[in-house]
Amino acid sequence: MLSKLFFGYFAVIMVALSLLVITRRNPVHSVLWMLVLFFHIAGLYLFLNAEFLAAVQVILYAGAILVLFLFVIMMLNIKVEITAERFIGEWPIGVALGLSILMLIYFTTSKLIQGPAGQFSIEAIKAETHTKALGKVLYTEYLFPFEIASLILLIAIVGAIVLAKKRG
């Protein structure tokens, strides 16, 4: 009962916050609402016993990525942004696309079959702590995808530096 109440709170508030993010006229306000949204996502991770993911969600998304967003947006001329047209002319197409994807998700979720339970039950994770369990899986079974992901990020960093250097 209590867990359902908790999940209901997070679900409703997260939808409301997402709407606030896309409807604010002032982009800085949008980013600040997104910060509150990220905290609720972290809360949802805690709810799933994934405390490591919750902490990383706050450190990386709220503490690093969103601050950089805010940095860029603060440099914009807010006074022009506020008076600018909110939505481009093609928004009905976007709404139609979004609704059709929502329908697709709705119909597929009813057909989902639960897979067999793996070795990581809630009890196993509680005994081993989430951080340790995640680390073990990430650095053994999924080491190759992990390395590929880090290589892609490295290329992005090198690319950004090359682009910035060419100007000077």
Partner: peptide
Amino acid sequence: NIGLLYILAMSSL
């Protein structure tokens, strides 16, 4: 059990 990460998360705010 993520005390140190929690502190880092709070200081990043």
